[in-house]
């Protein structure tokens, strides 16, 4: 499977959470869009790619036990919908923690991890995952 270009072209968003801002209404979107779904044609020419901070809070989450085969080593792993500070919501894994340490509202930040790889000989895909934010030097789950 030669899928390198498909992933490569999304690198700015996958590596750095480059989203999209509509300067007509001020709303942020992730991933980038071509037009603002609220402003439609009025947004044409008034949008810009914007790097989102990558920090936010868990809006909903689940611990995945029956996952895709490529993630078998991590099972069970956590998938969350994160509400970013800018207001956009994004789906991603939450790592380096246990589900019991998380709740709706837990603060997280984006980090870069391996998302998948095309077997042992193919391209490795990197992108954002989230880690709980240390508050007062401690992370959720710390004794």
């Amino acid at each position: 499977m030669a899928t390198a270009p498909r992933y490569w072209r999304e690198n700015p968003s996958r590596y750095n959470m480059v989203g999209f801002k509509c300067n007509n209404c001020g709303k942020y979107y992730f991933p980038p869009r071509i037009i603002c779904p609220l402003c439609h044609r009025k947004s044409v020419g008034k949008t810009e790619p914007v790097k989102l901070k990558g920090t936010g809070a868990i809006f909903s989450f689940t611990e995945v036990h029956e996952g895709m085969d490529e993630h078998y080593v991590q099972k069970p792993y956590i998938v969350a919908m994160v509400e970013l500070e800018e207001g956009a919501k994004v789906t991603g894994q939450v790592i380096d923690c246990d589900a019991c340490d998380l709740s709706i509202g837990t603060k997280v930040r984006a980090t870069l991890r391996k998302l998948s790889e095309e077997g042992s000989a193919g391209v490795i895909h990197y992108g954002y995952k989230f880690v709980p934010v240390r508050e007062n030097g401690e992370r959720p789950g710390d004794e």
Binding site: S60, T91, G92, G127
Partner: peptide, 24 residues
Amino acid sequence: QEWETELGATFASLHALMATRHMH
């Protein structure tokens, strides 16, 4: 595919996100 599945979300997990939130 690009923004849910590739990030590790399964079809069941997306419905689990709905369930978690509905319960909350």
